[in-house]
Design a protein around this nucleic acid. Sequence first.
DNA 1: CTGTTAGCGCCTTCAC
DNA 2: GTGAAGGCGCTAACAG
Lengths: 334, 334
Amino acid sequence: MKRPTVQDVAREAGVSPSTVSRALHTRGYASPDVRDRVRAAAEKIGYVLDHNARNLRSRTSTSIGVLISDLRNPFYADLAAGIEEELRAAEYQMVLVNDNADPAEEMRAAETLLAMRVPGVIVTPVTADCPRMLQDNGVHVVCADRELRRSGGDVVLSDNKAGARELTEHLIGLGHSRIGLLIDETKWSTGAGRLAGFRAAHVDADLTLDENLIAYTSFDAEAARRTTRDLLGQQPTAIISANNVLAQGALAELKDRRLKIPRQISLAAYDDVPWMSLVEPALTTVDQHTVELGRSCARLLLARIREELPTRRRIVRVAPRLIIRGSTGPAPRA
Amino acid sequence: MKRPTVQDVAREAGVSPSTVSRALHTRGYASPDVRDRVRAAAEKIGYVLDHNARNLRSRTSTSIGVLISDLRNPFYADLAAGIEEELRAAEYQMVLVNDNADPAEEMRAAETLLAMRVPGVIVTPVTADCPRMLQDNGVHVVCADRELRRSGGDVVLSDNKAGARELTEHLIGLGHSRIGLLIDETKWSTGAGRLAGFRAAHVDADLTLDENLIAYTSFDAEAARRTTRDLLGQQPTAIISANNVLAQGALAELKDRRLKIPRQISLAAYDDVPWMSLVEPALTTVDQHTVELGRSCARLLLARIREELPTRRRIVRVAPRLIIRGSTGPAPRA
DNA sequence: CTGTTAGCGCCTTCAC
DNA sequence: GTGAAGGCGCTAACAG
């Protein structure tokens, strides 16, 4: 299956290959009539540029690597959708890889992207090694959603501390003083920020936080459910789950116990995903503007690639928004 | 940022560039000791293959194009996740493009993929032009989820007719004789199949289907909600929504009306997505095995690319599975 | 089993 | 404003 090349277009238009190249892409270097003739010729014989040849010649590529943990989680899907939208508008392509939050997979993917000579990668990093290795090889990196110590690269984050603080304040404002926090990780900036916001709200309100109300679990709905069961032993009047996956488990457990939400117990989540407005009562949660987060990542990366930015590392913090729905209400009288 | 090339590895290992190439990739064409030496050298100087150069030379690529309508819809996200999983295992990469179900975007994306010289594309086609154009240019195409008249290419489908029939039979078995169908499109094989299954179940049960019970709407939850309102005027005792988006609208309307599900009316969906098991009552629906659908697409495409298949067009039909949950129950006494 | 040679298709000098 | 020449990094074809 042989496809037409610039040579063929050149012959058809009666000009040289270099003129074809200029007429088709470089701006201003060809007279208008030649340009038209070349374009017509290209169209006529069905010429399609060869990215591989162009990339080889110019040592770049318009493919951008996107490394995420789990496309089936709406958070990552939205993030990827935002990234893709922005890349497409700029005529870049998105090479999407699921690394399942596995360091080895992540590293393998990074190597593949190196081989593709992508100019940049957006990653929700599992370890700092991956972003670092990419940068050591001259690839621009934007870390999305979390910041790792010594990962380097630009970062786009949701302001987790502010979001969690606002959410916690909302509950405190409703009279809750025993608020349980269901959380999986606090090593990454994501969980750490949410925990910090949770604590900060307590401090601001002069409330002593019973450490037993912080329930550590693993990133999986079933585990969250069991942890919620334990947490209920601490007699909280409200529960915050640190992300959308944990919220599923928490909700399942509360429903299973036939606890009236929010009359007997309030439930709030972090990271708004569609199902939270479909359940009854709908869940109070923090919207991370995930799609916009993705768009920001892409814009930042593209600016880097075009060298429009000062070398200094940039950290973009996207303000989240508290969405109050029916699942949170006044604390029950003791 | 100059990266090491085969030349550099060759010098380091004391062999020729072609031997490096063979030792690194082609199997069996280099003696074990040379192979080891070359690998060690490559590792030592941090050599990474250049896909662009290889693709140019060998006129192939290991990137596969995936064209879908909307990554934020869990159906497409799951499909993409299944595809990516299988491609990654085979050391292929996924270039993912959202076309927003817009024919122009779809065509633009197809041209980009042509420029990338991808050997194959998986697409949820909006028009037949896109798959056809790709095939005319020697690209293997697998159409996912729907079959378009004269699109050509292999197809991987959920057996929509069987699924809808089984779901309808389930309702008929519960005594429902006025079942409303909320559906958006019937031009594509997807909607057409579901409608056909719905009709077939009625025929099998010797039930005359009141055509007013088929409510056409557009692909959007809000529209579905309004259509549901109208449909309720026809006094159905059960409603089937033809996909996950329409189901949101239908559920919202029923809840808004304070109709007891399933006591006053049964609700069932098509295409199982996570929220359907979180709402109360959980929705009876048909699981399309979407991730597996995606895997099938990728496997089929890869087999094509490796020329392991007879030229004849292949149509894979994945059997869906009825999931009965709490939202469907006996028809209320008239 | 290994080396030499010759491009893949493009674009960027450099001349004119 | 346009053409000629060369080479990006790799591997297929051909010798040896």
